[in-house]
């Protein structure tokens, strides 16, 4: 065998960006599988019980709809943040990140009200399997939102370091945040409407 042409090597900096992004995609892949496990169990359990409650009859779908709007908006502000980073607009980057965090917190607060109300009514995870899956799925999504808030705050604190050349962390947090958003867009109709 003879050597084939040596491919043009990327600069060290480009390589770092490249790896970081690839790593993030893989991470999201594994996150998808994580939620797949839950959803598969949910579907199996739901299908084996003909008397499974209808989400819109027992859950507060109005609040959840508001939350959906909140999250989608936060995805938008996140996209704007990434865009700002790429264009070196640091002020706008900070503003958008802060807004995203604010929306995320809003989501959790609304979720908190929802939970409090349910528990007050005696609907705990152990009261019925329906609530078990409801708390499990939304709870894990909530934990991901919380993780997102932490990551976003870190990026906000370090925002000095990002510019049009180096903004992989912003992009990655962005990817993660869109993922969290998409999961919710699946969960909302599955749990609250169907």
């Amino acid at each position: 065998m003879t050597a084939t042409a040596i491919p043009h090597a990327l600069s060290e900096h480009e390589q770092r960006v490249d790896r970081a992004k690839l790593g993030m995609w893989m991470f999201l892949g594994s996150e998808v599988m994580f939620f797949t496990g839950f959803l598969a169990a949910y579907i199996a359990l739901r299908m084996s019980d003909p008397a499974w409650p209808r989400g819109h009859q027992v859950l507060n779908w109005r609040l959840a709809a508001v939350n959906t709007v909140v999250l989608i908006t936060s995805s938008l502000t996140m996209a704007l943040a990434v865009n700002a980073a790429q264009r070196n607009l640091r002020g706008r980057l900070r503003g958008c990140l802060a807004l995203t965090i604010l929306l995320a917190v809003t989501f959790l607060v609304i979720k908190g009200f929802e939970y409090a109300h349910k528990i007050h009514d005696g609907h705990t995870p152990g009261s019925h399997l329906f609530y078990g899956t409801y708390f499990l799925l939304t709870g894990f999504h909530g934990l991901h939102v919380l993780g997102g808030i932490v990551a976003l705050t870190l990026v906000l604190l370090l925002s000095k370091r990002f510019d049009s050349r180096w903004n992989a962390p912003v992009e990655n947090v962005g990817l993660y945040w869109h993922f969290v958003d998409i999961v919710w867009i699946f969960l909302f109709p599955t749990l609250y409407l169907l």
Partner: peptide
């Protein structure tokens, strides 16, 4: 590892929920 282990993680989380939160999955 990347695409199968998360399934195990979700299984353990579900059983932990059964044991600690009182769900009955």
């Amino acid at each position: 590892q990347t695409l199968a282990t998360p399934i195990l993680a979700s299984a353990t989380v579900m059983m932990l929920a059964d044991k600690l939160l009182g769900t009955t999955l």
